[in-house]
Each structure stands twice: as structure tokens, then as C-alpha cells.
Amino acid sequence: MTEQNTTTIPGLTWYGSGQSALHGDLLERFRQIDLMFVRIAESFRATDIALPPLISVHQLQKIDYFSSFPHLFTAAVALDPEEANLRLFKATAGESSNGLQLTELAPVTEVLVPAACYPLYIHIQGTEVAPSAIFTTRANCFRREKEYVPLKRQWGFTMREIICIGSETEVRAFLDSSRSMLNRLFAKLSLDVSWEQATDPFFDPGTNPRYVMQRVDPVKFEMIRSGLSIGSVNFHRQYFGEAFKIEHDGGPAFSGCVAFGLERWLWALLDQFGSDLHRWPDLSAEVVV
């Protein structure tokens, strides 16, 4: 049985499985945080797009996701639909106290989305993006972790992303401009956040070419508060353009994204301004402009 605990923070209920529920004024703040980022996206005239929560294993294999992040993914498993298998499951389900006892499984063809921008590259693969395009999307993302902490490190969490696809110059300009807007936002909110060079959390990093490349050619900068990343700015070069055959100007498109962990932003604001939400700064979308 999943344990649920009302925390000392009004409006936050923590589930032992690494998930949380938000309600009341805290939920309202959560929505306002997201709207600040939507406002940033709107300033780039981004196309808003809602994408599916399951992502194809076959597609993720194109970016070597499973060898790079075997520790993070959560598979969408289902039982083999053969009737005898279902009957066997029905007869034994609920007998184990240590999770669900599964019988024969159907092939695993999908996993739960681990990052909001991946489904976008898949959605536009095989197309030419001309002129450059900016998108925004929000997703419930899932990443397995060794331990979970309310808002700071969750199995299920919410990510807002703004993604630019086009030429190298355009993508770099988008990332620079985003960073400037965020610096102004940090200042307006009086939120103490610093930028730090980072790498993705690769499994067995020393043997992974992408990890080595990220060390020698920094492409990821995180927004850090008290050692925790609450968001990041990422330059992918032509990595996704090549993997998903997204073309721009006669070659693989460049891409870059700005990502926000919405629960972590909530934590950062709670950390700095406390759980009396009336003492928080104005989070209306206008604060961004």
C-alpha cells in the first residue's frame, strides 16, 4: 500500500512512492510558476504542443537512451494478452506482499516519458524545419532514483520545456536570450540561483562518448540552488537533428532547450520564502516581461 503523508507544508501531500499531490494555494503557486515559463515561451512566439505520455522504445534507441540511462527509465509493461496467461495472473495477483506478481509479459515497446522534449523530436522527425521554430511543451516525466525527497527528487515530476530548432546561430541566440531573461527573473523574484556547468546523469559515465563530449565541450548549464538543479539550458548541436532526421537548411538541424523542473521551482521558492505563501514575491506572468 502506498503511504501518504501530509507534510508540514500546507497543500503538499507526499506519497512514499516518490510522488506528491498539490492542492489549495500551493497548487495555485505551482500553476503560476508554470505560467511564468509559458510567458517566456510566448515572448519567443513558441508553438504550444501537448505530446503523449508514452514514448517508443524504438525511437529512444536512436539516441542510445537505454545504454546511457538504464538506471532512469520506467517501462510501461503489460501482460501477455494470451488468455491462459491472464487467468494465471488473475489466480495469483495479490498473493505477493512485495509488489505485483506478474506472469508472462507482452513485449515492452514503450516507456514513460523521461524528459519533456524527447517526444517533440520524435513528433517532427523526418521533416524539414524552415525557418527555425520554437516550441513549448509540458510533461509529467518519470525517472527512477535511489531515493526520493518531496519536491526535490521525485519518481514522477513535471517538466516545462522551451525548445528551439534551426540553425546554429538561431539556437545559440535563443539560449543566450533565455538565459538573460532568466537572470532578470531571478533578480525580480530575489531568488538566489547560480549557473553551473553540468553533464547529464549518464550511467557508467567514463565509458560514454556523450558524457566525455559534455565534459570537453560544455553544452549544459544548470540553474542551481543549494546544490540542486531547478532547471537547465542545453545546446544539443545536431545530435537530435541527426538522430531523428530533422533537417534545416540542407543539413541536420541544430537544437537547444530550456527545461524547468516545476516541483523543484516550488521547492526553491519554499526554501527561500517559507511556507507562508503570502510572503512570496509576485509570480504573475507579467513579472517575466
Binding site: 556547468q197 565534459r215 570537453v216 565541450d217 560544455p218
Partner: peptide, 10 residues
């Protein structure tokens, strides 16, 4: 060594 791999090394 991994520590030798610094921004700009290549």
C-alpha cells in the same frame, strides 16, 4: 583520466 578532460581539451 576523466579528471584530465576539461572544457576545451579537444
Amino acid at each position: 583520466e576523466v579528471d584530465e578532460l576539461k572544457p576545451g581539451s579537444f
